[in-house]
């Protein structure tokens, strides 16, 4: 049981280059502390993030996913964040259907001037994923396979 007690989730965050990644930098510059469970992957735009990338990340072992882009209307590429938002809404249904708990995959808007907001988002995403426990739905559990 001690393993579960020490368990720390790993969360992949796909951040758009122009708003959320800059917001994450600002959190650093302002020294807003947040949990170290997050692994940031910079993408040009939240619209670059496909369903495939989210599912693959879960398959690779991510316990949680965060996709964050510019606020509505602020997209550096005009409309990418709208596509991301729509795609995410559809994906939620699929995730629900295949048994991925709501809260594993989150979406947020964080602008370049919202360092504190970014830290808050990471806090709440981390807490949510911690409460859900390790993600196992899409991860091949070799131990289980071998035991059988």
């Amino acid at each position: 049981m001690s393993e579960t007690n020490n368990w720390e989730p790993k969360i992949i965050a796909f951040l758009c280059n122009w708003c959320s990644y800059a917001g994450a930098d600002l959190a650093g510059v302002s020294r807003f502390q947040y949990p170290p469970n997050i692994r940031i992957v910079k993408v040009p735009c939240s619209g670059r993030v496909s369903e495939n990338m989210i599912m693959s990340a879960l398959k690779s072992g991510a316990d949680g996913i965060l996709v964050s882009g510019c606020h509505p209307g602020d997209c550096h590429y005009i409309s990418g964040n709208y596509f991301a938002k729509r795609r995410f809404a559809l994906l939620s249904n699929l995730l629900d259907f295949i048994g991925i708990e709501p809260g594993r995959v989150s979406f947020s808007w964080v602008s370049a001037s919202e360092g504190e907001q970014f830290a808050e988002v990471v806090h709440s995403v981390t807490e949510r994923v911690k409460a859900l426990g390790p993600a196992s739905r899409l991860v091949k559990q070799l131990d289980a396979v071998q035991a059988a």
Binding site: A27, Y34, P36
Partner: peptide
């Protein structure tokens, strides 16, 4: 730095 040492100042091992 911006996304690690500056935001996890109290958790050196995890950082």
């Amino acid at each position: 730095r911006d996304q690690n040492s500056w935001v996890h100042q109290l958790e050196p091992e995890k950082a």
